[in-house]
Structures are given as C-alpha cells and as structure tokens.
Design a protein around this nucleic acid. Structure first.
Length: 582
RNA sequence: CGGGGCGUGGCUCAAUGGUAGAGCGCUCGCUUGGGGUGCGAGAGACUCCGGGUUCAAUUCCCGGCGCCCCGACCA
C-alpha cells in the first residue's frame, strides 16, 4: 500500500479528551476517531489490526472445531423475557422499538439468541457437543465510557457458546477453550495471565479472565509464585497465622465522642490509631434479613464472598433505616459490642440474623469501632471479651499483605486489562429457555453450556497499552497492520522511487505486507510517522545507502539499524520469515 | 444517580458586551532534503442549540443538548 493514497490521518497532538496512552496513540496514528461518547469509527489502519486479531481468534477456534455463525444485533424482547434478563440487565441494555412498537434490544451478548437457535434445531445427544461462535458488535450502555475503545459502549467482540450432553463433557471443552485462549493471546504477542474470576450472581460455577498485564489496567489481580492467580474480586485469602495476646493486656472498653466522624479514615486520624485497629461494621440484607459483616479497617468487604458464606440468593447493602433499627444509630457509628441487644423492636425489620467476621479480625487487639450510639466510638475492643461473631470467614477483597490460599505465601499484586473471559454456565440458560435434547434413554435433558468471550477491539487497545514508547506504538509482528514500513527519502531524486518500487515488490514477493511512504515529505516527517504507526520493521531507501547498493533495515523495537545489500534482500527476507515462524 | 468542568476553523487553544485570533493541519509557490525545514500567499467559523437582558451577546442570565473528570452504581 502506498501511503500517498492511503487514508491515514496522523495527528501531532491527541484530542484533549483522550484519557489513556492507547487511545491517544490510536487517535494520533489515525486508527480511530470518535463519533459520540463511547462510540468509535475505525479507519483503515485500525481495522487492519482488528482483522489481524480476529483472524488469529478464528484460526484457533476452528482448530478445536468451532463453527462460525452470524447472529443478529437486534434481538426481540420476548426472548429476553424468557430468561428474565430484559429486567435484570438494567439500563446497560439499550432498547429500541420498531414502527409497530415491537420492542427489541441491541445485543450486549447473545446467550438468548444462540440458545434459541440451538433448541430449535438440536434435539439429540448425537448432535452434541457443539461449539458455535461469532464476531460482532456488542452494545452496552455503560454509565461512564472511558479509555477509548477499551471501555466503549459499542465494541467488537468474539462470543462463543458450547452445548454439551454432560457436565463432564462441558469440563473437557472448557479446557479446550482455555487452551485456545492461551494460543490466541500468545500469538497476539501479549503478556497475559489467566486468572480465576468470579462468575457473579449470573450463575456458572467456574470462570477465568484473561488479563493483559498493564499498569493502566482497570482490574487488579493477585498473583502467587505457586501459580495461583485471581482477580482481587475473587481471590481467596488464607487465614492469617494465629496471634495470641494475654487477656491481661486488654485495655478497658471506653467510649469516645467522635462527632460527625463516620469514616474509618476520620476516626482513626482523630483517635491517632492505625486503620488496621478499626473494626469496620457493615449491614446487609441477605434475602431480606439483616446481617452484620465485620472487616478490618484497612480492608474492603467483598460482597460476592459474603454472599457465598451466607448462601444468600440476594445480598444488598442495608439502607440507613436498617442501621437505625438494628444498631440504634446511623451508619458509621455501628459496632459489634453488644450488638444483638441494640435491636429496636417495632421498626420495619427483623432482628439481626448473623454476625460474620473476617479472619483478619482475629489479629486485632484493642481495636475500635462504632459504639452503637450517635457520634460515639468505642476503643479497647477485644474479641471474646467484648464481642463474639457467629462465624469467621474470608469476606474481604484480597489486599496487600494477604496470603495465597494454596501455599500461604504473600500475594503479589498487578493490574490487568481483561481481554477475555470463559464461563461454565451449567444449565442456567438451557433450563430457562428449555434448550433440551433426548439422551440415550429417551430422557429430555437440558444441555450443559459454556460461554467464552474475547473483546477483540479491546485486545487491540491492550496490545498498544502494553507495547509503546515515547515515539508511538510498537506492534507485535503478528497483529501489526503491516509488517514493513518502506520509507523513501527524497522521492524526487533520480532512482529513489524506482529502487523503492523494486524493494516494495521484493517484500511482497517474500510474503510481507508493506506500507510504502512514497509521499513527497521531509525525512523527519516520515520517520516520525513511521515510529508513531509502529510497524515492526522498517526499510529506508535513500541516496545515502543506494550509492553502495544498500538499503537500511531497522526494527521498531530496537535502536540499531543495519545495512542490507539490495542484492541480498531476498535472502535476508527469507531469514526474517523463518525467524518469525511464518 | 450526585458533585465539578468544558463547548470558539480538521486538531490544540487564545480573546472580547461592538459578530473573532494564534500554532499545527490543508491548498499554491519558492526553499529545504536522515528525525515534524524556512519564507510568502491563500482556503476554512451563523463562536453547540433555543430563549432572555441589552442599542448591541461568542461574551452576562435561564433552559436544552453534547462532551470530559471525580464519586456512587452495575458485572
């Protein structure tokens, strides 16, 4: 492709609202433009990368017998009513009406549609298992789109769904998909990590997220040298080693006036005590009944863990009036001491059902917490003497200092960009949508399902986020929009263009894609643009080297340039091809 | 959903109660030719929309729309 006639509007400056590295570079390199909040246009250069990633995904899924389909973006309400997700999905589901006022939504995902398709035409165990996938736009009406295409409202995604006769078969295929995902992200040249993830209340019993390691990632992951890796929202933590303190060292309980201070931050500063001494007291409604959860002041409670511990179907933060009724004071002044006697009868709630304390509280001596009295906190609180929870459990989000649940070594924390997720869905959708088959005994059984997504557009951004420098993007060769940048210096000088043309033809003959900068621009402009676009290999044709029958070869990721004899070009290219495993 | 900010040429931004200017980009000419060359000449803006105040509004006020940031929410 000749740059003189390629739609590649590069920019010196990124738009003011570009809020991270990858989106700035994507704008500057002429890959994308913004049409509206969270909605982007992909220009030719950007689309080439997207298609590169797409092809890698397609090849790897086809290897495990995936079959590509194309599903509608516009999906009827009725189908979404069957699973109940028309209501559950909330405002993220973008809804529209046609001219007859029939209601539809823009697909945020496609479990309903694919399951409907399979239930209609698959009816025997002989037809299972089956793995179907598609590439397509997804629309999620995010409250706050940001980071360019990383968290866009409309994005390009590969979604795959598998259907099985048995749980065991679903497990086998889950591993196949897991393996395919590893191949995909490896081939894309990404440093990534599969981590255990929470499948959330949506169901399913196992899930992994594939994280591209990047400091700017939105997700935090906990890693251990033993190999355990999990999203911090999911990561379990080992119970810390027991620590015993002589009860004679217990300080006496004392109430302290703390007017208007309801955050751990405020109170610990005021009392001049470490946040780790705080016993954070939170109330929840577990299936409608009030429960109290205690975590250490420097920890954050993880609602998913708490839900699991309580075996609750629904868990929500308790509204203010529950605090008033159960603890007799506003949130921020509730505490564990004598809590079960603070219930104010006659209010519109039941008494406290359970008190769950995080393991970490076993290590808190002479702690402080709310006094169950407005504007008052209690200091000198000790487990056993002053309060006794109904149970201890791991209910806080993994944090600095926590230990790996497998080997008890401290976690290492990193940030990541979630580019893919795999789920075992079980029969959640096949049951609600009655997607059944007849087994060998003529029994009608719901299929066991799995679903597997890859954010293709996000993967492109993640690759840039992970690989760039002050000059621009540095593409991995496998997903670069073109492999070679061919730069002609002084296009008006005699012989330059014809020699460049010869190199251009040779590159093509050797099987490489080339973007040839044949513009009548100054060298500086061309080099800046080439670095910005970040193609992995660059060849410069100029009078300087041509007089020796040579051109210049340089890798984007490296500083040094090499002289290549033009006559040896085919050999050099063949070597490069071998090195790339092409 | 709460708080804050912004809306002026393609991009980044100035300015002003009397209808606008710079840099970059674009066009033309010359110049230059290995890291965004220099000079000159141009094209390009109903100053987001609607209303109000005013002799006069891009500027002040109100409403709307759009965008951004922080937080909450959501998975």
């Amino acid at each position: 492709m000749k740059l003189s006639n390629y739609f590649l509007p590069t920019l010196r400056e990124a738009p003011a609202d570009a809020d991270n590295i990858s989106v700035k570079l994507m704008f500057r390199a002429g890959m994308i433009r913004k049409l509206a909040s969270g909605i982007y246009e992909w220009l030719p250069l950007g689309l080439r990368v997207l298609k590169k990633v797409e092809n890698i995904v397609r090849e790897e899924l086809d290897k495990i017998n995936g079959q590509e389909v194309w599903l509608p973006v516009i999906q009827p309400k009725e189908l979404w009513m069957e699973t109940g997700r028309w209501q559950i999905y909330g405002k993220e589901l973008l809804r529209i009406q046609d001219r007859k006022d029939s209601e539809f939504c823009f697909a945020p995902t496609a479990e309903e549609v694919i399951t409907n398709m399979v239930r209609r035409d698959v009816s025997s165990y002989r037809q299972l298992p089956i793995l179907l996938y598609q590439f397509g736009e997804k629309f999620r009406d995010e409250i706050r789109p940001r980071f360019g295409v990383m968290r866009a409202r409309e994005f390009y995604m590969k979604d795959a769904y598998s259907f099985h006769a048995t749980e065991a078969d679903s497990d086998v295929w889950y591993q196949k998909l897991y393996g395919a995902y590893e191949s995909i992200f490896t081939r894309c040249g990404l440093k990534y990590k599969p981590v255990e993830a929470d499948s959330g209340p949506i169901g399913g019993n196992q899930s992994h997220e594939f994280m591209v390691i990047a400091d700017t990632g939105e997700a935090e992951i906990a890693l251990c040298e033993c190999g355990y890796a999990a999203n911090t929202e999911k990561a379990e933590t080992a119970e810390p080693p027991a620590r015993t303190v002589d009860p004679s060292k217990f300080a006496p309980l004392k109430d302290v006036a703390t007017p208007g201070m309801y955050t751990v931050e405020d109170v610990s500063r005021f009392l001049k005590l470490n946040k780790k001494q705080a016993i954070k007291t939170l109330f929840f409604l577990a299936d409608g009944e009030p429960v109290m959860a205690l975590v250490r002041g420097d920890h954050e409670l993880n609602e998913n863990k708490l839900r699991r511990v309580l075996s609750a179907a629904e868990l929500e933060k308790a509204p203010q009036h529950i605090y008033e009724a159960v603890a007799g004071c506003p949130a921020g002044f509730a505490g564990p001491v004598d809590i079960k006697n603070k219930y104010v009868p006659g209010r519109d709630t039941k008494p406290l059902k359970t008190v769950i304390a995080d393991y970490a509280l076993k290590g808190v001596f002479n702690g402080f917490s709310g006094a169950n009295k407005n504007d008052t906190h209690t200091v000198g609180i000790n487990l056993g003497r002053d309060y006794t929870p109904d149970a201890f459990a791991d209910i806080h989000a993994a944090a600095e200092g926590d230990l790996c649940p497998r080997c008890k070594k401290p976690f290492i924390f990193k940030r990541g960009i979630e580019v893919g997720q795999t789920f075992k869905l079980g029969t959640k959708y096949s049951k609600s949508l009655k997607c059944e088959f007849l087994d060998e005994r003529q029994q009608s059984v719901p299929m066991v399902m799995g679903c597997y997504g890859i954010g293709v557009s996000r993967t492109v951004a993640a690759a840039i986020e992970q690989s760039n420098d002050e000059w621009g993007i540095i593409w991995p060769a496998s997903i670069a929009p073109f492999e070679f940048s061919l730069v002609s210096i002084e296009t008006e000088a005699s012989g330059i263009l014809s020699q460049s043309q010869a190199v251009y033809d040779q590159l093509h003959a050797s099987g490489f894609s080339v973007l040839w900068d044949d513009r009548d621009e100054r060298p500086g402009v061309k080099f800046k643009d080439a670095d910005l676009i970040g193609l992995p290999f660059r060849i410069v044709v100029s009078a300087k080297t041509l007089k020796d029958g040579e051109c210049e070869f340089k890798r984007r990721a490296e500083k040094t340039a090499f002289r290549w004899k033009l006559a040896e070009l085919p050999v050099k290219l063949a070597e490069l091809k071998t090195a790339l495993g092409k």
